Simulated scan of single mutants.
Amino acid sequence: MFAFRTAALVAATLTTGLVAGVFYAYAISVMPALHRADDRTLIDVMQKINVVIINPWFMLGFLGTVGFTVLAAALHLGKGSRTTLIWIGVALLLNIIAFAVTSGLNVPLNNQLANAGDVGQIGDLAAVRAQFETSWVRWNVVRALLHTLAFLVLTGALFVAGMQHARAGAVAQAAPAASAASAWPFPVQPGFPPAQQFAPQPGFGSGQR
């Protein structure tokens, strides 16, 4: 069970980190570069990007930020994983908010840009750019920050889960020894196993004269 829980948590962390990286790259390179380009270039490039980015690899990561985090939370519902579950819950909330920003704000702007038509047929390129660029860049920064925070929290969840598993393993190993010690009817001297302390000694009840 621990393996399944860990795999789900790693998948949630990985997909969240990848998507945060995509939006981070937009924020620090793609959009600043396009900001220096003319209206026609920005509109044409963004229209093309918004088409090619809808591919299985991106969608797996994008949907996985929420899907895998939900799965990880479901697998950590046990009493022994409560602390890890809190960390996962925080990350899930951040990923859901970021998902909502993308779906409710960035995607409609992408659709608006697509509906403006082919760049060669747009009459007022500056107006189309003005309606798209500033808002899209702002909300992209917001979703990048949210996914980055979720990634950091999920990293913390992995650490906490590992510590809890190690602690549970130590307790499980100590339990048999404690049980054996409590079952021995005589006091045990430090440094000597019980079997040696109370084994028959030569000359004392051993049949030797």
Rank of each mutant, 00 (worst) to 15 (best):
R143I: 08
Q197F: 02
V22I: 12
A195Y: 11
F58S: 02
D44N: 00
G123P: 08
L125V: 01
A74W: 06
Q196H: 08
A73M: 13
F198G: 03
L71G: 05
V101G: 02
I53P: 01
N115I: 11
S135K: 14
P202I: 14
G169H: 11
Q189F: 07
G120W: 00
L125F: 05
A199D: 04
V66F: 07
D118R: 03
G123R: 14
T16F: 02
R82P: 04
L75T: 04
F23N: 01
V101Q: 05
S103W: 05
A11C: 12
I53V: 09
P56R: 11
L60E: 03
L77I: 15
V30D: 08
R40G: 00
F2N: 15
L154R: 02
L63K: 07
I97G: 10
M31F: 13
V160I: 12
L125P: 02
A168R: 03
T41H: 00
L9D: 01
F151D: 04
M59W: 04
D118E: 11
L93D: 06
D118Y: 05
A25W: 02
A73K: 12
V160D: 08
F99N: 13
N50G: 03
L154I: 01
L93A: 12
F151G: 12
A74T: 09
L85S: 14
A116S: 05
A174P: 07
T69L: 00
V22H: 03
A195V: 15
F151Q: 10
H147A: 14
A116R: 00
Q164A: 11
V107R: 08
V52K: 05
A25T: 14
A100Y: 07
A150G: 10
L18C: 09
P194W: 07
T69H: 00
N110K: 08
R129T: 00
A20M: 15
A3K: 14
T41I: 01
K79A: 12
L109W: 11
L158V: 05
M1T: 04
L145I: 15
G67T: 13
L105N: 13
S81Q: 07
I49C: 02
N95S: 12
A127W: 03
T102Q: 14
F4D: 09
D39P: 00
A127R: 12
V188K: 06
P194M: 03
N106H: 10
A25C: 11
F151Y: 07
L146T: 06
T65W: 00
L9H: 04
T15H: 13
A175I: 09
G67P: 05
G156M: 04
V142S: 04
V188D: 14
L63A: 06
I53W: 01
T16Q: 09
F4L: 14
L105F: 11
